[in-house]
Design a protein around this nucleic acid. Structure first.
Lengths: 154, 154
DNA sequence: TTTTTTGCAAAACCTTTGCAGTTGG
DNA sequence: CCAACTGCAAAGGTTTTGCAAAAAA
């Protein structure tokens, strides 16, 4: 599958906390790197590299797209960031944390982050039927969200 | 999510059957289109457009990549073909049929097609926990297959 | 100073599109 | 005959890479 290997997830609750974690690992804290972290904290949910480079539509300073990608990769390696693939669009990045598994609605595009523990029964059902150990952190569960499913039914 | 809308899935069991289905819909049967169908029947599992254009590494005549994409789109619209996204690679195409949901191993890349009925308990668990109506036909369940999970454990 | 990181430009990769010519029905 | 389809070439969107200049430690 060739998915970039992410470090063991680290939960940070502020930009300064993330910065400390970076320094602990011997990684430097440049303006561009700090900006990526600020964007991830400022964003409401998973965001694309492009939107980060845009400074979240100008709310933050813009930065170079290739540096954003490189920093996201570094941060992911450090365990501070994860990315998910949603539909046919670009990958979306978010801070690693407790809510690191995702449901996506293919109708309205909503991305619902859920506690992995809540998915345990689902994993159990998959394990029982196929022996497959499912991870939903990188490729989410796609389908219709509660709202859209209700609309369809009604 | 903007996923190309596929027609109601049609199960065909031979190239000639597929050709008949195409004619029924007023679609033409060109050499290039027939070749795409032949590749899908000849392939052991889901294949990329690129591999089809290659003639499955030369086993079949090569064809133009853009025509392959256009034909796959047409065939998908006719309900004869489906595509899945596996990992970071290109989309993979397969004949529509009863086994149209997929498990993917992120370690060894194996794609396991399963009967949707077998996934019903899984869908039930998801529905119960989140109200989300999961479809695994377009984005598969990613994780470790039985073999790789066993290796990891042992 | 030394190594990491940046910004820019260019390329790579997958997919789509425009268009003039060919072909299937 | 005429609409559908082809092949080629070019572009589109996302991500990666090379490299010299800048900045962090």
């Amino acid at each position: 599958m060739t998915v970039a290997k992410a470090g063991t997830p680290i939960r940070v609750t502020s930009v300064e906390g993330a910065v400390a974690a970076l320094r602990e690992r011997g990684l430097r804290v440049s303006a561009a790197r700090r900006l990526v972290l600020e964007s991830l904290f400022a964003a409401e949910g998973p965001v694309s590299a492009d939107r980060i480079a845009d400074g979240l539509e100008g709310r933050l300073p813009r930065s170079d797209l290739s540096s954003v990608y490189r920093n996201l990769e570094t941060l992911e390696g450090a365990g501070l960031v994860r990315h998910v693939h949603v539909g046919h669009g670009p990958g979306l990045y978010a801070l690693a944390g407790p809510a690191q598994e995702f449901l996506v609605c293919e109708r309205c595009d909503v991305v619902i982050a859920v506690d992995p523990a809540a998915l345990e029964p689902v994993r159990d059902a998959i394990r029982a039927a196929f022996g497959h150990e499912a991870r939903f952190s990188h490729f989410p569960i796609v389908g219709l969200c509660r709202r859209c499913a209700a609309q369809t039914a009604g």
